[in-house]
Simulated scan of single mutants.
Amino acid sequence: MIRANGVDSPSESAGPKRFEFTVGTGAVLVSEADDLAAQQKLSSSASAQAQVEVADATPTDPADAQQAIPLDANGFPVQPAQPAAGAVQAGYNYNGTADWARRNVGIKWDYGQDCTNFVSKALYYGGGMRFRYGYKSWDSAWWTNDYWMFGWRINRSYTWAGAANLHRHLMYNRYSTWLRWTSDARPGDIVFFKWKNESRINHAAVVVSWGARMELRQHGRQGVTTLNDVLAWYRQKNDPIEWFVVVRPLGTN
């Protein structure tokens, strides 16, 4: 459960965090940090070791965690017998993200591979997601800015413009959840793709319609497309899409 503004909301988010406890007759949480650069040390006493279970802080690959959308024999998403509507949380502007992506899919690319930069812009300008400041290579950071050095240049965190980095940021440093079925998807959700011959997630797109057909807007091979069109196109190639996940942000902080 996540408490925001005094209200508890369920979340399926999972990720590494660091905690500090006081250990006496019981373990009492005194601080929490989702920045992996933070260092919190537990006492080396036997009582501390006996009361605290330490888990591996390495983020779990969504494929290993079985969070990827199941595909049928033809490589298209399996649908549940009775699709359930996905939960929507207050704060993050789902329709704003989708509307921004629709209206701006034709804008100039800033990079040769601009897919995640486009998604981040939609999250920021349309969805109201706030910057997270920190060193540019940290998964906990998420920001962009322009600076002058013999001409205007764009500076950004790795999470702003790298698909795998943004996926880790949303799942392990924000309040977000995976969706089990494409029929649960709604405008403003984000799709991350992993190709068979790629070692990690390498593409992101914005969902702009409800339901299993799932219209997408992206900076990629084709800006206006659908999920099935993307899957069918690459299934004809030597490097098909092996799996994908649909992520729903649950807040802006």
Rank of each mutant, 00 (worst) to 15 (best):
M1D: 12
I2G: 01
R3L: 09
A4T: 14
V7K: 09
D8C: 03
S9C: 06
P10S: 03
S11Q: 04
E12L: 11
S13E: 07
A14S: 14
G15N: 09
F21N: 09
G24Q: 15
G26M: 08
A27K: 09
A27P: 10
V28N: 14
D34S: 04
L36C: 05
S45L: 00
S45G: 11
A46L: 15
A55Q: 12
D56G: 06
A57M: 06
D61M: 06
A63F: 14
P70T: 14
L71Y: 05
Q79R: 11
Q79H: 11
Q79G: 08
A85I: 07
A87F: 11
A87T: 14
A90R: 10
A98V: 05
A98E: 04
W100H: 01
A101F: 02
R103D: 11
R103N: 14
V119H: 05
S120C: 14
Y124N: 12
G126V: 11
G128H: 08
M129T: 10
Y133N: 14
Y135W: 13
W142I: 06
W143I: 05
T144I: 13
T144P: 03
T144S: 12
N145D: 15
W148H: 04
W152C: 05
W152S: 12
R153T: 10
I154R: 14
N155P: 01
R156E: 08
W160G: 11
H167S: 00
R168A: 14
L170P: 02
R174D: 02
Y175E: 12
W178P: 04
L179Q: 07
A185D: 05
G188Y: 08
F192L: 01
K196D: 13
K196L: 12
R200E: 14
R200Y: 15
H203G: 00
W210P: 00
W210D: 12
R213S: 13
E215M: 07
L216G: 04
R217H: 11
R221T: 15
T226P: 06
V230F: 00
Y234I: 02
K237E: 15
E242W: 06
W243H: 15
F244I: 10
R248I: 02
L250T: 01
N253L: 08
